[in-house]
Amino acid sequence: MSVTQSARRVSAYEVVHASREFRTLRRRFSEFAVPAVVAFLCWYFLYVCCAAFAPGLMETQVSGDVNVGLCFGVGQFASTFLVTIAHLRWGRRRFDAQSTRLRVRLEQGRRR
C-alpha cells in the first residue's frame, strides 16, 4: 500500500469520525458504558471498603445466620447479572442496528 493511498483512507475515517451519525453512535456507546462502569466500580469499592474498615456493620444479623455482609456480597452478584441483562437490552435497542447500518454504508462507500 502506497503512502498516498493510506493517507486518503485514513482521512476518510476522519470524515466519518466527525459525522453526525457517528457522533450519535459514540454518544449511545458512552451513555450506557460510562455511567455503568462508574456505578459498578463505586458499588464494588463501597463493598470492599466496608469489608475492610467496617466489619461490625457487615456482621449485623439480617435473618437467622444470614448477615449484612453476606447480603451485600450476594448483592454484588445480583448487580453484575442485572448489568449484563441491561447491557444486552441496550445493544438490541440502542446500538447494534445503528452500528450495522453505518458499517454497511462505509463498506459500500469503500467498494465504489
Binding site: 458504558a33 455503568a36 462502569v37 463493598y47 452478584f77 453484575t80 447491557h87
Partner: peptide, 21 residues
C-alpha cells in the same frame, strides 16, 4: 469463611469491565 468469598466477588465483578468497554 467470609474472607474467602471476597476473592470470588472480585473475580466476577471484573467481567463487567470486559463486557462494557
Amino acid at each position: 469463611g467470609y474472607d474467602g468469598f471476597l476473592y470470588s466477588i472480585g473475580f466476577l465483578v471484573g467481567w463487567l469491565l470486559v463486557l462494557l468497554l
